[in-house]
Amino acid sequence: MKQTDLQGELERMHTASFGWALLCCNHHREEAEEVLQTTYLKVLEGKAMFGGESSLRTWLFSVIRRTAAEQRRRRWLRVQIFDQWQACLPVPSHAPDPEHMASASENSRALLQALTVLSARQREVLHLVFYQDLTIGEAAQVLNLNLGTARTHFDRGKRHLRKILDSSGVQP
């Protein structure tokens, strides 16, 4: 794929990619932007190359997910090393960004809050299927899972999420 074509595709999928990056970074906006920028660099510099085994979208999402995991690991390591000298360095947390939560509507806040209770796999599968409109098979490709495993995470996640949303009392 040519450089210009690739850039056009990235631009076309930019908002969807940002949504996925947000989920991978626990809805921390700055982290998500950094992850997305790093991913674009990887793709455009050819460090991450599209092999054509899957769709470009699922491949890009898997690169974003991997990049977010790398960044999270690096951040965790930095906190461990410089903990003694830099006590003020923010520790990565799984709670959503308060700023992001404040800007969301009540329903979305409830949904974001409920998603934090789910396991990471369940959260990711539900996001890819309901938010990104991917099939469970495509979600399995992004997460590097078997189809059966992805289906199990999807069903359990749905049931769990329904229960949490019902208990929160927020109507759609």
Partner: peptide
């Protein structure tokens, strides 16, 4: 669930 996620997506896309 799809509707809820769609609302969230619209809000996040606006902030992208």
């Amino acid at each position: 669930l799809r509707d809820r996620f769609a609302v969230l997506r619209r809000q996040e896309e606006a902030q992208a």
